[in-house]
């Protein structure tokens, strides 16, 4: 599936992890699977929130375990 949220996540991932190909960024994988470290993960989330105009506390992301759950959380808060 493709939508504004996934597109924004994908763009952020490609900036933070330049060696990743766009089609590797799917809802089924986690950022860790893609090679992101802890700082990279915050980087991706912050950039994506910025793109989408969303402001959430980091504590909101404790249940996020893959790109699918990240996308669902961000969709719920998309203005």
């Amino acid at each position: 599936m493709s939508d504004a949220v996934l597109t924004a996540i994908r763009s952020s991932v490609l900036v933070v992890l330049p060696e990743i190909e766009p089609e590797q960024v799917t809802e089924e994988v986690s950022l860790t699977d893609l090679g992101a470290n802890s700082i990279d993960r915050v980087d991706v989330v912050t950039m994506t929130m910025d793109t989408l105009g969303i402001s959430l506390s980091v504590t909101e992301f404790t249940d996020v375990h893959d790109i699918g759950s990240l996308a669902r959380l961000l969709r719920r808060h998309t203005p």
């Binding site: 700082i39 915050v42 980087d43 989330v45 912050t46 950039m47 929130m49 910025d50 402001s55 959430l56 506390s57």
Partner: peptide, 9 residues
């Protein structure tokens, strides 16, 4: 403008 969106690094 947006403290939450400071670069993570």
């Amino acid at each position: 403008s947006s403290p939450v969106h400071l670069p993570a690094r």
